Computed example of a mutant assay.
Amino acid sequence: MIEMDWIWGLIGGLTIGCGGAVYLLGNGRIMGASGIIGGLVDGSGRHEWADRMAFLAALIIAPALVVYFSGSIAQTNLTGNIVMVVLAGLLVGLGTRIGNGCTSGHGVCGISRLSPRGIVATLVYIAAGALIVVALRAMFGGL
């Protein structure tokens, strides 16, 4: 029997992939979360703020619906160190700006379109993430 984590991961991956395809086919744009949200923050996406707000609302509402209908919150291995969580979030935001995209833009949409830039970016951020985890575990003895 397959563990439930595998099934939830498969469902989540299929959902993100289908969402990226629908967004691309419907809007003619890549579904990169950092670019969509970044356009709201820096004002560059003012002319399409309704689409961007709908996307942001869906990012918040969809997990809430899963929790509501399933009756439970998924168990995570997130650290209790809030400083590390905030620092990680800031570094992810900085990385998405430096890399001109995030996992949904480069990893899901870029690779599926066989974009060389998306493939290279995905390989770089996965390698960087792995190195950071190894370094933090060595420095702090675990996360």
Rank of each mutant, 00 (worst) to 15 (best):
G39Y: 00
V22L: 11
G110F: 08
L114N: 09
R113I: 08
V120P: 04
G26E: 01
T15Q: 05
L114D: 06
I98V: 09
G101R: 02
Q75D: 14
Y68C: 10
A21L: 12
M4F: 10
G93K: 05
M84L: 15
G35H: 08
R97I: 07
G118V: 04
M4Q: 09
I111Y: 03
G71T: 09
L91K: 02
G35F: 04
G93I: 06
D5R: 14
G9W: 11
S112W: 05
L94G: 05
G89W: 04
A64C: 09
E48F: 03
G35N: 12
G43S: 05
I37D: 03
N81D: 15
G93A: 05
L123H: 04
M4W: 11
I73W: 14
A128Q: 01
D42N: 15
A54H: 02
V108K: 01
D42K: 13
I61G: 01
F55H: 01
G142W: 01
G20K: 00
A127I: 05
A127M: 10
L25C: 09
L143N: 10
L24E: 02
G20T: 00
S34I: 02
R117C: 01
M139T: 12
V41K: 12
L24H: 05
L25A: 13
M53H: 06
R29A: 12
V85K: 06
N100Q: 14
G9H: 14
L56C: 12
V83H: 10
A135T: 12
G89D: 02
V120R: 10
A54N: 03
A138Q: 08
P63N: 07
L10Y: 14
V92C: 08
L25P: 01
N27H: 11
W49C: 02
V124E: 07
Y68L: 15
V67P: 02
G32V: 00
N81Q: 13
G101T: 01
R29W: 11
A88E: 01
I111D: 01
G26S: 05
L14I: 11
G95I: 10
E48G: 05
G12F: 13
A74W: 13
G89R: 06
M84S: 14
D5H: 10
A130Q: 07
Q75C: 05
A127G: 09
V67G: 12
G20D: 00
F55M: 04
Y125C: 10
L90M: 12
I132C: 06
G118D: 05
G19W: 00
S72Y: 15
M139P: 04
S34E: 01
G39L: 02
A128C: 11
G93N: 06
G26V: 03
S34N: 08
L25R: 14
A21P: 02
G99T: 04
G101A: 04
G26Y: 03
A33H: 09
V108Y: 00
T15W: 03
G45H: 06
M84W: 06
V86L: 13
G99M: 13
G13S: 14
M53W: 10
V124N: 06
S70W: 11
A127W: 07
E3Q: 11
V133K: 10
L14N: 11
R29V: 12
Y68F: 14
N27T: 13
